[in-house]
Simulated scan of single mutants.
Amino acid sequence: MNRPPQAALPDPTVKLSEGWHCLHIYYRVDQAALNAIGKSDRDWGRGELMHWLNPEREDAPQRLLAAVMSGHRADLGLMIMDPDPLVIDSVVQAIRACPLGPALVPTYSFVSISEVSEYVPTAEQYGEKLVAQGLEAGSEMYAAKLNAYASRLPAMNKQRLYPDFPELPVFCFYPMNKSRVPGANWYMESFSHRSALMSEHATSGIKFAGRVSQLITASTGFDDWEWGVTLWGRNPESIKEIVYTMRFDEASAKYAEFGPFYIGYSRTPQEIVDHLRL
């Protein structure tokens, strides 16, 4: 019996076909463990920690952010992105193995990957949206809007997959799901309805351009939540305002479930070591 030909399988790899792996991890300082570390090891450990937290070192991951965290759940927060998940994990293992490792206790982590959301319209879908809004296909205004969107789309998608971290001082992270409860099951809604709700949600966020930068990473199959939301703010109140404002959108008010919020302030490795009194 002749078997039908099978498509060639991709080569085994830990890397993604597009996009980067992402890790958020948070530590608290165990003061008793820190006090038990001798002075020479503590001095050495500070230097080692600053080395591993330095995003400019030669073998650093593609993106590395360190922040002083507010509240009792964590003192230090890291966000790390790279094509190779083991490069990301090498930072975690280096911190664990350095002389200050016993005093830095992980309290929470979140594993995800970058993606282009299925709700980001293609140029063709954007054209259909313009027609639905009342523009005549082929009109001068239609062509201008469509061409402007099509020219922006590659750069926007590149930023979603291979993001630059903005140089903003306030750093916020939280995980989220879309609900599955009776009467508000996101996954029972049609794609067109979900897409319309997400378009409304995105329109709310655009109002904060320049004040807040956002990155959504996908965690289905990687962690207990479905997405991770990272926000960078020009000031603290902008974080509160964008989260409050967007909760009134139906996609959030009816269908969103939120995990714990972590907020902190981006600092250099030296500033972090000094602030945490390591």
Rank of each mutant, 00 (worst) to 15 (best):
G19V: 07
G19F: 04
W20G: 02
H21I: 02
H21Q: 05
C22F: 07
L23S: 02
H24P: 00
I25D: 00
Y27L: 01
Y27T: 01
R28V: 06
R28L: 05
V29Y: 03
A32W: 07
A33W: 05
L34N: 05
I37H: 08
I37Q: 09
G38N: 15
G38T: 13
S40Q: 14
D41S: 14
D41Y: 11
R42D: 10
R42C: 13
D43W: 07
W44P: 00
W44T: 14
R46G: 00
R46E: 15
G47L: 09
G47E: 14
E48D: 02
M50T: 11
M50Y: 12
H51M: 08
N54M: 01
N54A: 13
N54T: 11
P55H: 11
E56P: 01
R57W: 11
E58G: 08
E58L: 13
D59R: 05
D59Y: 07
A60Y: 12
A60M: 08
P61G: 02
P61I: 08
P61C: 09
Q62W: 09
Q62H: 12
Q62G: 05
R63H: 09
L64D: 03
L64S: 03
L65S: 11
A66K: 04
A66I: 02
V68P: 00
S70E: 10
G71C: 03
G71L: 07
H72E: 15
H72G: 00
L76Q: 01
L76E: 04
G77T: 06
L78R: 06
M79P: 00
M79F: 09
M81C: 05
D82Y: 05
D84T: 01
D84M: 09
D84G: 05
P85E: 04
L86G: 01
L86V: 06
S90K: 00
V91Q: 09
V91R: 13
V92R: 13
Q93R: 15
A94S: 15
A94T: 13
I95A: 11
I95L: 11
R96K: 15
C98N: 15
P99F: 09
L100P: 12
L100S: 05
G101V: 14
G101E: 12
G101H: 12
P102S: 13
P102K: 13
L104F: 11
P106F: 04
P106A: 04
P106I: 06
P106K: 01
T107P: 00
T107S: 08
Y108V: 00
Y108G: 00
Y108S: 03
Y108M: 00
S109R: 12
S109Y: 05
F110D: 03
V111L: 03
S112Q: 06
I113P: 00
E115H: 07
E115I: 12
S117M: 12
S117I: 02
E118A: 15
Y119M: 05
Y119V: 09
Y119N: 14
P121L: 11
P121D: 09
A123W: 02
A123C: 08
E124K: 13
E124A: 14
E124L: 02
Q125R: 14
Q125H: 06
Q125C: 05
Y126C: 04
G127F: 02
E128P: 00
K129T: 10
K129G: 08
K129L: 12
L130H: 09
V131Q: 09
Q133V: 01
G134I: 10
A137K: 15
G138D: 12
G138V: 02
S139H: 10
